[in-house]
């Protein structure tokens, strides 16, 4: 009986996280679960393609006036201070109602440099930013931002973003946090072609 109560509670939480609405005139599909789970959903943002050339993703030439978001790609005069162009979003839900040994979860986000797909010596450092707010299932906390580089540089520049998900309600969620991209200080592409970088999310119990 106890688990049924928990299950109903989590159903409410899920609707909050995913923005579902109840239509009283239609059959509803109810999603829910019992027991502790972790949930991570990452959604990359799709950028325009340059059809004739075949490149995909962000236009890295911040001097190209045809790119409306060029100022968001251009390195900030104050490094690690401004979020850039949006490149995706993610949502997280963790519960730890059943466990007596864990107190939440830690989400770690890291990334590689942008590497040219055919010339691996051409690499560009960039700032990866996130803007998020942690919810306990009923109320949402203050919006927070964090920015990191792919490598730890002088001045203790962070090379990863760590978000601790721990709430007294034993439910912690981040709904549609945004991911941002901005070229790092002093970076400018000069080798023509396609670049790629892997962003990794790691969530573990704490």
């Amino acid at each position: 009986m106890k688990k049924i109560i928990v299950s109903l509670f989590l159903i409410v939480s899920l609707f909050s996280v995913f923005g579902a609405t109840i239509d009283p005139f239609k059959v509803q599909t109810i999603s829910g679960f019992i027991d502790d789970i972790s949930y991570l959903y990452v959604s990359p943002f799709t950028f325009d393609y340059i059809g004739t050339v075949g490149y995909a993703g962000i236009n890295l030439d911040y001097e190209d006036t045809t790119a409306s978001y060029r100022n968001l790609v251009k390195p900030s005069s104050t490094p690690l201070s401004m979020l850039g162009v949006q490149i995706g979003s993610f949502s997280v839900l963790v519960t730890y109602t059943q466990s007596t040994t864990i107190s939440g979860a830690k989400l770690t986000i890291t990334h590689e440099k942008l590497i040219h797909t055919t010339d691996s010596s051409a690499q560009l450092e960039y700032e990866l930013g996130v803007l998020y707010a942690i919810s306990n299932g009923t109320t949402t906390g203050t919006e927070t931002s964090a920015i990191c580089l792919s490598t730890e540089a002088t001045g203790n520049n962070p090379k990863k973003i760590e978000i601790t998900l721990s709430q007294q309600s034993k439910i912690a969620a981040i709904q549609n946090a945004y991911l941002y991209f901005r070229l790092a200080n002093g970076q400018k592409a000069s080798v023509t072609g396609q670049y790629e970088s892997v962003v990794t999310f790691t969530m573990e119990a704490i």
Binding site: G57, G88, S99, I102
Partner: peptide
């Protein structure tokens, strides 16, 4: 059903597990 609904979702128990997910940022210089 949730796993099918969200293809990029990683789901599992948090205790004693590590959940990894990644995506590729693409950019170009023409």
């Amino acid at each position: 059903s949730m796993v099918f609904a969200f293809a990029d979702t990683h789901l599992g128990r948090t205790e004693n597990t590590v959940t990894d997910s990644s995506f590729v940022v693409q950019g170009y210089y023409k």
